[in-house]
Design a protein around this nucleic acid. Structure first.
Lengths: 235, 235
DNA sequence: TAGTGGTCTAGACCACGAA
DNA sequence: TCGTGGTCTAGACCACTAA
């Protein structure tokens, strides 16, 4: 029942204010700085340090002469969603069938995309991805084995992004290319559509902390999949 | 030759430091806080306020016990590019042929996307867009006429985004959907491709300051266009 | 040991907004 | 007029890093 042994004062104030305004409507007033000075018995600069953090964070908004208020929520920056999350968001049940999972030597394209040298060891993971039981997408993912030792031995996870997340390597930045095409014979067979049917091709370089951790090439059945993207800055 | 009549001290310090590190290599040391205290004859809190701004901005990075250094440039958040800018970036010459530019009553889909009521007046602008002379894309843009009075009378601009920019309405946030399909008869004729050829369909809601200013539906020849997207947070 | 950034104090004066 | 946030001072002690 004891709180942190030694909490910094500005952190205490910050978290107190954060808990106060949690769930409050935008425009609601936050405590004034001088009020917090009295409540916590700290200097005003300390209170300002606490409030500054919340303002930078986008939670509060200062209006000179009036006070400090709960800010209108800023639009969140794009978060990279995995196939699993994306399907869950649409209310579909994602499934994944591993067709291939092995160590390979990187070819020229994959090596360049992963910022490796041709012939370096990479993990190649091919999956057929279903949503509510119907084939949706065929995905080839290539991973830099150096960054994720023991990945193949650990047994393949359900969600690649969850697995990377647990290693602190969840991509927070991606460079994607998207194009329309028609299904090849092999793709058509796996996706259970006609050869020549329209498909969406999606390539991604996923980066975490400036390191390329994932390169993938996916092909989606166009009749079943529309890609959604949100772009831009906060607001 | 006179500087601003009354510059705030923390601004003076901030801009001095900014000019010092402009063009400096990442990792280069910035002046220490106490050095700036002596140079400007101000309190350390004032210097910290100046440096805080540069740290939040991503220009500087503080390392306790070591000093303050020029930060590795953070990846910029995605900026919404117009067709014109996008083609220029690829080294292609963008051209635009207006097929239609008139006031219309919003249908149900456009009204909802523009956050208007069905029957409200909207501007419909259809363009055939070429790159290096070859048809690339057919675009239907719908604009909220309330936000851009006199738009049709002003003569159609070369770049929609530039025109919106000059009114302070350049979209900074977009919600896009992308899907693969095949060209219709009409599209095929305009895009000079075969009916049934693969195309990329791109829909966008473009927002500026929380107002929907643009809704567009574009169809791209898949053999000539690959979409590039960068997603995620700074780094 | 000397220098750095991190935290904190106890005040001060200012411009601005609301009453 | 009174309360608000914005700015600023002249110190202080701490933990950490590097020499």
């Amino acid at each position: 029942m004891v709180t942190e042994g030694r909490a910094l004062k500005h952190v205490q104030v910050r978290e107190y204010v954060r808990s106060l305004v949690a769930g409050a409507a935008p425009g609601s007033p936050a405590p004034s700085e001088r009020e917090l000075v009295h409540r916590f018995g700290v200097a005003r600069m300390t209170v300002r340090q606490a409030m500054d953090a919340l303002v930078v964070e986008g939670l509060l908004e200062r209006i000179p002469g009036r006070g400090t208020f709960v800010a209108r929520p800023r639009r969140a920056a794009t978060r990279l969603a995995s196939f699993t999350e994306e399907m869950n968001r649409r209310g579909l049940l994602p499934e994944s069938q591993t067709l291939l999972a092995r160590r390979e030597q990187a070819g020229p394209g994959v090596a360049r995309a992963l910022s490796l040298t041709e012939g370096d060891s990479v993990i190649h993971w091919r999956r057929l991805r279903r949503a509510d039981g119907v084939p949706m997408c065929l995905e080839d993912a290539y991973l830099n084995e150096i960054l994720i030792p023991g990945f193949l031995q650990a047994g393949m996870p359900t969600s690649l992004y969850d697995a990377l997340d647990s290693r602190g390597l969840r991509p927070t930045w991606a460079e994607d290319s998207i194009t329309a095409d028609v299904a090849s014979e092999e793709e058509a067979e796996l996706l259970e559509c006609a050869p020549g049917a329209p498909v969406l091709r999606h390539s991604r370089r996923g980066l975490a902390e400036d390191k390329v951790v994932e390169v993938s090439r996916s092909v989606y059945r166009a009749d079943r999949f529309t890609m959604w993207v949100q772009l831009g800055q906060e607001s």
